[in-house]
Structures are given as structure tokens and as C-alpha cells.
């Protein structure tokens, strides 16, 4: 199944998605983060929170775009959700395919491991001791995933585990399913 999914996603990326210059994108996101740091006086916990809120705003809108473009139906399991997110979602919007790993036994938690992060090209965290310990530079991605999954009735907790910008070996995001929002499922679905 995954081969078909991957080719489908490639086809969408090639033909039905408008593309922009990656440096413009990286510089725009970079100036957003650095401006946030300046506005919030380098209170990196607050910056992380604001990035997540921005991400949620983006996510609730992005999910409609994703559904309209791919015509995907409801996933039958959380595992399938993970596969679709990494192979189709990230491919369409960022042209990267993170690895899905670290499935827990009950299938309610997994990690996405990124080998490249277009948001953080050429970025070095500022040298004031706090940033390296507290700032998750790409936290907007966590917000996007959380907001988008919330709109399809999945309550998920998304957070960073490690980040190359902070000196770790790899960039890893953990997604943990809290529950299905059964009462919000539109009538007609099971």
C-alpha cells in the first residue's frame, strides 16, 4: 500500500501544487522567529507557545486544503494516519518525507524523524546559553499537526523530542494520540 501512496503523493507534488523559492520561505520563517524572540524579550518558553498557536491556526486551515487536494478518506487506524501524514502531507507541503518510527505497543504513539528541515536551513541558535536549552525553532510544525488532526476529530499531543539545531543527532517529533473526539464526528460516519 505504501508504494501506491508514495507515487500518488509524488504525482500531486509534481502537478497540483504551486511552488515557491525555498530560500524565500526559510528567510520568512526565520524573520518570524527572530522577531518573536525580540518582541518577547528572549523568553523562549513563550516563543515556543506562540509558535505553536500560530501553527494551530495554520493547521486547521491546511487540513481542508489537504483533503481537497488529495481526496483522502478517513484513515482506518492511527498507524495509517501516521503513514499518510509523513508520506503525503509532508511531501505535498514541504517536499520532505520524514521517517515514521518508535511505535508504542498500543499503537497510540509514534515519532517522525526528519533528515532535513527546510525551515531551519543555515540557522544557528543565538549564543546566549538559554536558546540552546529552551527554544524549539520549528515548533510551528507541532502546532500545524495538532490543529490539523484536531479538525479530523483526533486529539493528539505533538511535541519535539530532539533537534539538530540544539546539538542532538536528529530532529524528532513525537505524536501521542490522546483520544478520538467521538462526539464531534460529523453525522454519518462511524
Amino acid at each position: 500500500m505504501s508504494k501506491a501512496v508514495r507515487t500518488a503523493a509524488d504525482e500531486i507534488w509534481k502537478n497540483r501544487v504551486e511552488k515557491i523559492n525555498v530560500e524565500l520561505f526559510t528567510l520568512t520563517y526565520g524573520s518570524v522567529v527572530s522577531q518573536l524572540c525580540r518582541d518577547l524579550n528572549n523568553n523562549y518558553c513563550e516563543v515556543n507557545k506562540q509558535l505553536e498557536i500560530m501553527g494551530e491556526n495554520i493547521g486547521v486551515r491546511l487540513i481542508e486544503d489537504f483533503l481537497a487536494r488529495t481526496g483522502a478518506g478517513r484513515c482506518n487506524s492511527f498507524k495509517e494516519t501516521g503513514e499518510i501524514i509523513s508520506k503525503v502531507g509532508f511531501k505535498i507541503f514541504l517536499n520532505i518525507v520524514p521517517q515514521v518510527t518508535n511505535w508504542t505497543d498500543n499503537g497510540k504513539q509514534f515519532s517522525l524523524v526528519f533528515d532535513e528541515n527546510p525551515l531551519a536551513e543555515f540557522v544557528e541558535l543565538p549564543d546566549d546559553g538559554k536558546a540552546v536549552k529552551e527554544l524549539w525553532y520549528s515548533n510551528v510544525l507541532c502546532g500545524v499537526l495538532k490543529g490539523a488532526l484536531q479538525m479530523v476529530q483526533l486529539d493528539v499531543d505533538v511535541s519535539f523530542v530532539s533537534d539538530v539545531l540544539r546539538g542532538h543527532d536528529q530532529t524528532e517529533i513525537k505524536l501521542r494520540l490522546i483520544r478520538y473526539l467521538k462526539d464531534e464526528i460529523p453525522a454519518g460516519e462511524d
Binding site: A8, G71, C75, N76, P186, A187, G188, E189
Partner: peptide, 20 residues
């Protein structure tokens, strides 16, 4: 999941699909 079937790859816009 529509991504399983061929209809997804062949049609420019997926047809015959409604979520409910």
C-alpha cells in the same frame, strides 16, 4: 482509504467520493 485504489491515480480529480 481512497489512496488505496487506482481511481486516485488515474482521475485528475477523485470522483465518486463523499466523506459520509
Amino acid at each position: 482509504s481512497l489512496l488505496n485504489t487506482n481511481s486516485f491515480l488515474n482521475h485528475p480529480l477523485p470522483v465518486n467520493y463523499t466523506s459520509n
